[in-house]
């Protein structure tokens, strides 16, 4: 079956970890993830500047490794990212900001990508809040 997974919370929120473990279990169960969509505070997980305390589970790093390992389509909402200072090179140049903190494997794109993923997938599962 095909899953679309939307993450609304930052990496330090328990719900972001649950999303990660759900996504890992979905792939391990032989299912497909058509898209991961990071929205609202979820965009923080894509920032390359997150430093997680050493004694904590590093959710943003695990997201990055998971997306890279499985070559997943991982979209970060551009409007949510811009207002939170999560920029790739193109956007940093466009708005004359001096920091770039959205490295590969993430793609900046619009909310339409969430809508399309919801139409393509058999299930859309959202994670947010605590």
């Amino acid at each position: 079956m095909k899953f679309a997974i939307a993450v609304f919370s930052p990496g330090h929120a328990p719900s972001s970890r649950r999303a990660l473990l759900f996504a890992q279990a979905a792939l391990a169960g032989g299912h497909e993830i058509v898209r991961l969509f990071f929205y609202q505070d979820g965009v923080h997980s894509a920032s390359g500047n997150i430093v997680t305390p050493q004694d904590e589970f590093d959710v943003p790093a695990h997201w990055r490794a998971f997306v890279t390992e499985h070559a997943l389509d991982a979209v970060v909402c551009i409007a949510a990212a811009l207002r939170r200072g999560v920029l790739n090179e193109e956007e940093a140049a466009r708005y004359q900001r001096n920091a770039v903190n959205l490295p590969a494997p993430w793609d900046l794109s619009g909310l339409g990508q969430l809508h399309e993923a919801a139409q393509t997938a058999d299930r859309l599962v959202c994670f947010g809040g605590d």
Binding site: M1, F22, A25, A28, G29, L124, V125, C126, G129
Partner: peptide
């Protein structure tokens, strides 16, 4: 339930509604 069972539940039901 564990995570594999969570995945199975999400497929058993037609839709998943998260109270965000």
């Amino acid at each position: 339930v564990d995570y594999p069972a969570f995945v199975a539940l999400s497929l058993h039901y037609d839709k998943v509604n998260s109270w965000l």
